[in-house]
Design a protein around this nucleic acid. Structure first.
Lengths: 114, 114
DNA sequence: TCCACGTGCAACCAGTAGGTTGCGCATGGA
DNA sequence: TCCATGCGCAACCTACTGGTTGCACGTGGA
């Protein structure tokens, strides 16, 4: 088991996690199957189990997956809540930036046509 | 001038660009000031002009900045449109994944209480 | 005309990301 | 009881990222 004890799960961690196509593919499989182990994921992907484990660690750091031990297997499930938080965070950022840009554009118009 | 001739600008490029705190800071400055040069940005940041130029290249690849030559200066301005597109793309992804997860949850309930 | 200033390009360096192989350990089933 | 299976850990490799310095080029102003 990696951590899952949710340290921070910043929006930045989610962006980093989602920036990799293999990690998005992992989340897609997890959503389609409802859960999977590192071994079963490696069977569906072009990389080894250990590489999958590293990707799962990144996803776990972002809070996007949760690990459950079941016997000698460790089953991973997707948690989309941090993703929803992150899109809202990005929208807020975009709104702030656009607000500043519009304010500047208004100032420019005010100066040219008085 | 870097490229600005918009090659693809995939959501992935936007995620990669936004995953770095310095690049987010660059966008913040660009929105606050309405535009800046690599030299003026380097004055506001703890890194050299050449490092700034590399970050601007990443932002340009994502379509988040646009370069305009003005005399011997190259002025960069923020373009938030790819950011808005990316948040919508992420929302769609989240919706698809949640849809699959809910379908699986329903199946499980159906099986346990018939 | 000439010089200063802003850019662009290239080489270089350290650290990290993504991938591999190898091995040891625990656990569940025959 | 014993063996196959699933995991975790560690070492190692390669490529890319983020940063630096140094230098050459073009352009605008005194």
């Amino acid at each position: 088991m990696t951590r899952t004890d949710e340290g921070e799960q910043t929006p930045e961690d989610v962006l980093v996690a989602l920036a990799d196509p293999i990690r998005r593919e992992v989340l897609t499989i997890l959503a389609r199957e409802g859960g999977a182990t590192s071994t079963s994921l490696a069977a569906s992907l072009p990389i080894t189990r250990q590489a999958v484990a590293k990707h799962l660690a990144v996803l776990d750091r972002a809070g996007l997956v949760r690990a459950h031990r079941a016997g000698r297997e460790v089953r991973y499930e997707a948690d989309l809540q941090p993703l929803r938080r992150t899109t809202r965070w990005m929208d807020t950022l975009a709104a702030q930036w656009e607000h500043r840009l519009n304010a500047i554009k208004d100032l420019a118009e005010e100066a040219t046509e008085p």
